[in-house]
Design a protein around this nucleic acid. Structure first.
Lengths: 261, 261
DNA sequence: CGGCCATCTTGATGCAGATCAACGTATATC
DNA sequence: GATATACGTTGATCTGCATCAAGATGGCCG
C-alpha cells in the first residue's frame, strides 16, 4: 500500500468555519463583469448579456477562506458550484485508513463543485487565503433554462475538466515518477500562462506532500525528482515554493516519455 | 517505467472502416423512445417531449462496429457524441513509446465522445460487436438552446463521468493491486446491475490486458489478484470472461482498503 | 538572538509489483 | 484430429519507488 500522507482523520474546520464571511452583498472586491470580482475575461459571467449578469450577480455570494479552511466535505449536500476569484485550493478524497488523493488544484478563474445526486464526492480545502464566487446550482439551472449561453459555459468548464482527467489518469496509470513531476510542473505553468500569471518563475502554493498526493507518489520521491531536474539544469529552485523552468523542451520530452534518459 | 501493454503503434483500422455501416435511416433495430434503439429508459432521449425526440431522431445516426474497429482516434476532429446501444467498447490514450492507458469502458446506455476544442483527446475502439447512436454535437447544441432538458441530461452524464474519474484517480493514485482489481470488479457489477444486466455471474468482455491498462497494472498482476480472490473464495471464475461474486461484502472491504488482510 | 516547529532534502533499506520466462487452455484453420 | 495463434496463469527474479531514518533549511515568536 503506498503511503500517501495518511491524514489522521481528525476533524478539520467545520465547513461553515468562523473565517468564512457569509455572502457580503456589497461589491467590496473590485471591477468585473458583475462587479463582484476582478477576474475580467476569466470570470464565469464574462461576456454574458447584461440581463444574465445581473441575475447571476443577485444569486452569487462572495466568500473568503483562510489556509486549511474546509469549504465543504465529502458527503455534504452539494448545493453550489464555485468559481475561484483569488488564491489556491485543493479538492481531495480520503480512504478510511487516511490515504489521500488530491484530485485537483484550483486557481483564479477555475470552477469546481459539480456534483452528482446532490452530494459532494470530495472535500475542498483552501491552500492560501482564497476568495470564491459561490453559485447555487438550483439558481444556475433555473437561469440556464432561458439562457443557453450559461449552459454552454458550464458544459465547457466540465468538458475541460474531463479532458484534464483523461490526461491525469494517463499520468497516474502509466508514467514514471520523473515523468509525473515534469508533467505536473508543465501543467501548472501552462495554466498560469493561460490565466495571465507569471509561469517562470512559477509559484507552487501547495506543499510537496500535496503534490505527492496529487500525482500518486510520496514526498520523498517528489523531492528527489525535483532535485534531479535541478542538477540536470532543467529547473531552478530559488526556494521550495517556486520553480524556474530553464529548459521547457527537455522537461516536455521527459513529461511525454519521449526523453532518451 | 511500468510496462503496460506497449501497443506497437501500428495502424489500426481507419476510423471509417468498411465494417461501419453509415447511418441507415430506417428503424432497423427495435422499439425505443425514438424508434432507433431498444434502450428504453437507458436511452439518451428517454422521457423527452415528442418534439425533441423527433428532432433527435432526425439528426442521429446508427452505426455498427466489429471488435477492434476504431470509432475515432486521438486528434481526430470531434464532431459527435455517442450513446452505446449494444456491446462494449473502450476509450484510451497512448504515449509515444506505446504505453497505453484505458480511460474508460462503455456499455449499453453509456455516453462518450465529449471533447474540447473540437478534437478528441483519446481513441475509441470496439471490444465486442457494438451498436452506437451517433449525435452530432453541433445539432445537439442547437437543439439544447430551446430544450433545457437536453442540456440538463448532457450535464448529468458529464457529471456522472466526472464523479467516476474522481474515484478512478483515487484508485490509480493510492490503491494497491488487489484493492484496484476488487474495486474494478465491483464497479463493473454495479454498472451491470444499474442497466439491468446480470451482475453475478458478471461478464468481462474485455481481456486481462485491457483491465490492466485501465487500472494501472500489468496482466500478470491482474491475473494473480483474480487467482487470489478465487482461492479465498471471494469469487469464482467459471471461465476467463466471467466472474461470480461470491462474497460481495468481503470484496467491498478490500476495495475500500478497510479489510484487515 | 536563539529555540521551536514545520517543511524539505538526502541517505539506507525493503518490498510490491514489474519484468522475464514458461506453461496451460481455448478457439480457429485446414 | 493436428497445428497454429491468442490469451490466461504461474513461477523466478529484478527494480523503482515506498519506507524508515536523519539531517538541513527557514519562518515564527518569545
Amino acid at each position: 500500500m503506498p503511503r500517501s500522507s495518511v491524514v489522521p482523520l481528525r476533524e478539520t474546520l467545520p465547513a461553515d468555519g468562523a473565517s468564512a464571511v457569509a455572502c457580503p452583498r456589497p461589491a467590496e472586491v473590485a471591477r468585473g463583469p458583475c462587479g463582484h470580482c476582478d477576474l475580467g475575461a476569466l470570470a464565469f459571467c464574462d461576456g454574458f448579456a447584461a440581463r444574465i449578469v445581473s441575475r447571476l450577480s443577485r444569486v452569487q455570494c462572495t466568500q473568503r477562506f483562510e489556509p486549511h479552511d474546509t469549504l465543504f466535505r465529502e458527503g455534504d449536500p452539494g448545493a453550489a458550484v464555485y468559481s475561484v476569484v483569488s488564491g489556491a485550493l485543493k479538492v481531495y478524497k480520503l480512504m478510511p485508513d487516511g490515504r489521500r488523493q488530491i484530485t485537483g488544484f484550483f486557481f483564479r478563474g477555475d470552477m469546481f463543485g459539480f456534483c452528482l445526486d446532490g452530494t459532494y464526492a470530495y472535500s475542498a480545502e483552501a491552500i492560501t487565503p482564497v476568495g470564491v464566487c459561490r453559485l447555487p446550482m438550483r439558481r444556475l439551472n433555473e437561469l440556464a433554462e432561458t439562457a443557453p449561453e450559461v449552459q454552454h459555459r458550464i458544459m465547457g468548464r466540465m468538458t475541460a475538466k474531463l479532458a484534464y482527467f483523461h490526461d491525469h489518469v494517463l499520468l497516474l496509470g502509466r508514467k514514471t515518477a520523473r515523468e509525473r513531476v515534469a508533467t505536473f510542473l508543465l501543467g501548472l505553468a501552462e495554466r498560469a500562462r493561460r490565466r495571465g500569471d507569471p509561469w517562470s518563475p512559477l509559484a507552487l502554493p501547495m506543499g510537496r506532500t500535496d503534490i505527492a498526493d496529487h500525482i500518486g507518489l510520496t514526498v520523498e520521491t517528489v523531492s528527489r525528482a525535483m532535485t534531479w531536474f535541478k542538477r540536470q539544469g532543467l529547473i531552478d529552485l530559488p526556494n521550495p515554493s517556486s520553480v524556474s523552468i530553464r529548459q521547457p523542451d527537455a522537461l516536455r520530452a521527459i513529461a511525454d516519455g519521449s526523453a532518451e534518459v
